[in-house]
Nucleic acid binder design. Structure first.
Lengths: 198, 198, 198, 198
DNA sequence: AATGAATGAGCCTTCATTCAT
DNA sequence: TATGAATGAAGGCTCATTCAT
C-alpha cells in the first residue's frame, strides 16, 4: 500500500523506521504473522536486527503500528470521500474501502493479532478510529430517518455490520483470497442493510 | 463438553486417547493454540509424551479431530432436535446449538486452526457436516416459500449465515467471552433473516 | 538369502525367532542400520514388540546374530566348495562367495556394526569363522610353494586380502551398489595376488 | 590437527567458527558421529547452541566441512611436497601423508559420514581434491613407463589404491588405532604396487 | 508365549532479544 | 545510530525398552 508516499524530506532515522515498517507490512501480505521472524523483516528492510530494536521494543510493536495507520487512513483519506447523497451509499462506499484496505493489508493472523487484547491500541476509543467514521454515517442515516435501528444505536449497528463483514474477511482469508472480496463485500452489505430498513 | 459421556466400558486404550483429546480441548478453551505445547496436553491428561504420539501423529491431529467431533455432534445430536414447525424457528434453533457448541469448544485460535487449509478435514463435502444440517433447513424453507433466496441457493444462504455468525463468534472471542453469546447470536440471526424475507 | 531353508519341523518358537531374524536381515539390505527401528522389524515379522524382546535382549543382538550365521555359512557351505586344483583358484572362489554374501547381507552400517568392539562376537577366534576358511587355503598355497608370503604368515596374508576386499565392499556401499561387486571383487583379488607371486 | 594454525589476526567471528569446527573434529576422534550431539560440540567449544547454528545450518554441515579441509590440505600442503625422483616414491609419500591425516582427523564414523551420498561434497570432481593429487602422480608414472596400468587409467589405479588403503584405515579404526598406521600403510602400499609393475 | 500401551530422556532446531563494538 | 554475534529457553518429536495383561 502506498502509505506515506506523499511525504518528503524524511530524516535518515525516519526512513529507516519506515523501511522496517514497510517490510513488515509486505511480509504480512505474504506470510502468516507467526511465521514472520525478525530476521525476515530486517533482511527485507536491509537493516540489522539491532537496528530493528532501535525503533521497536518488541516484535509486536511494529505490527501494532499498522493499526494506527489504519485509523489514520480512514480518518484522513476515506472520510472525505464519503460524500454520496444517501447514507446507504455512504455505507457501501465505506465498506468498499474497508475491503480494499483489508485485501491489501490484512490477513487472518494479522486480524487476530490486532484484536489481541494485549494490543495497547485495542481498547482505544472506537469513535476515533475507522469505526468512528462508520458510526458517523449510520448516525446520519438514523437522524434523517433513512435507517431504522429498531431500538439500536448507531454504535450498535456499526458493530453489527463490522462483525459480519469481518466474518466475511475471515472467510476470504481461509479461502486464501480465492474470490473477489469487493464484490462479496458489496453483496453482503446490501443484504445486511435489509435489517436497517425502516 | 459432555461429548462421549454416555458411552461405557471403553478399553484402556480408548480412555487414554479420550483423556488426551479432552485435555487438548480444555486447553484450547484457556490458551492460544500455538501456545499449547504437547507437554501441556500430556501433563493435563496424565500421560507421557510418548503416549501422545501413540495416538496422534502430530500436534495438529488432535486438534483436527475436534472438527470431526463437531460434525458428528451436529449430525447425530442437533439434527434430530430441529423439529420446530417453521423453518425460521429451525434456523434459530440450529444457531442456538451452534452458539452453545462454540462457546464450549471453539475459540478464536481453534476456529482459525480448523480453517487452516492444511487441515485434511477442511475440504471435505460441506453437506456432510454441520453446514449440511443448516443447508437442509434452508432448502426446506425455500421449497415451502417461507424464505426467498433472491436468486441464491440454500448453500449460498447457509454461507451467508455462517460467515456472519462466525464473525460474531470471532468478536466474542476477542472480547474474551465478555457477553452472552446465546443472546447475541439470536439477535444477530434474526437480523440476518431479514434478508430472506420473500 | 535362503539361510536356514533346508531345515524343517521347527517349533513355533523357533519359527517366530527366525521370522524376526529374517525381517532384520531384509531391512538391513534396504536401510541403514541406525534407521531401522524395532517397530520396523516387528512389523515386517508380524509380531509385537514384546515378542521381539522375548527372543533378543537388545536391538543389537539380532544384528550380532547375523555374524554367527556368516561364520556358519562359510564353514558349512563355502568350505566344501573350495575344491579347485590350485590355491589361487580357491582364493578367487572364496572371495566370489564373500562378494555374494556381502552383496546380499552386508551394508556399510552393518559392517561397521559387526566390527564394533562391543560386539561380543568380535573377538572370537578368527580361525573358527570365515577368515579361518581363507587362512586354510592360503596356508595350503604357502605349503605347496604356489604363493610366497615374503615373510608373512597365512594369517597375515589373509588380513591383507580381507582388508582390501572390505575396502572394496565399503566403496561399493558408498556408491549404493552401483556396480557389479562380483566382477570388481574378482579384478581386485587378481591384482592383490600379484604380491603373492613367489 | 594443526590446521589453520599458521594464520593470525582472525576476527572474533572466524575464531568462534574455528572453535566449533575444532570441537567437532576432536569429538569425532573420540566418539561415534551419531553419538555426538550439538550440545557436546558447543560445550567443548564454549559457545551456545544458538551460536552453533549461526555458523552451520545443520549438524551435518560442520562435519562436511572437514572434507573441504582435507582437499585443501592435500592440494596446498601435500602436493608441493611430492618432489621425489620416482613416481613410486611419490606414491608412498602421498599415502604417508594420507595415513598421517587419517590418523588425526578421520575415524570410521567420519569416513562413513563423508561418504554419505547426502554429503554435497561427495560427488564433486575427484580430480580437484586429494585424489586428484594422487591421480597426477600415477599419470606421471604411467607416462614415463615406470608403471603399467595393464589397461587401466591413472584414475582407475588411484581408485584401486584408495579403496585398499581405506580398507586399512577402516580396519585400523575397528581396532581402535591399536597399531602403527604409518608402518601398516607403507607395507600395504608397497604390496599393492606390485600390481603396477610393468 | 505373545501383546502393545506406556514411558521419558534426549535429540535437533528456532528465534526473540541483548550488548559490545 | 547501526551492527550482527551470542544467547539459551523452549518446542516438536523419536524410539529402545518395560510390564501388566
Amino acid at each position: 500500500m502506498a502509505l506515506e508516499e506523499g511525504k518528503k524530506h524524511r530524516s535518515k532515522s525516519e526512513r529507516t523506521k519506515l523501511s522496517i515498517f514497510n517490510a513488515a507490512v509486505e511480509l504480512l501480505g505474504e506470510t502468516d504473522f507467526e511465521d514472520i521472524t525478525i530476521r525476515d523483516i530486517v533482511r527485507r528492510a536491509n537493516v540489522s536486527v539491532g537496528t530493528f530494536y532501535n525503533y521497536y521494543a518488541t516484535k509486536m510493536e511494529v505490527f501494532y503500528e499498522t493499526y494506527q495507520v489504519a485509523d489514520q487512513y480512514f480518518n484522513e483519506t476515506v472520510a472525505p470521500l464519503l460524500d454520496q447523497p444517501t447514507a446507504y451509499e455512504r455505507v457501501l462506499c465505506f465498506f468498499e474501502h474497508y475491503a480494499h484496505y483489508s485485501s491489501e493489508l490484512t490477513n487472518m493472523k494479522m486480524t487476530r493479532l490486532l484484536y489481541n487484547p494485549d494490543n495497547p491500541w485495542f481498547n482505544r476509543d472506537p469513535d476515533g478510529g475507522m469505526v468512528g467514521v462508520l458510526i458517523q454515517v449510520l448516525q446520519d442515516g438514523l437522524d434523517s430517518g433513512e435507517f431504522s435501528g429498531h431500538g439500536d444505536s448507531a454504535r450498535e449497528l456499526a458493530d453489527y455490520l463490522m462483525i459480519c463483514v469481518r466474518g466475511l474477511i475471515y472467510n476470504w482469508c481461509t479461502e486464501k483470497g480465492g474470490y473477489d472480496l469487493y464484490a462479496a463485500t458489496q453483496k453482503l452489505v446490501e443484504r445486511l442493510m435489509a435489517a436497517l430498513r425502516p
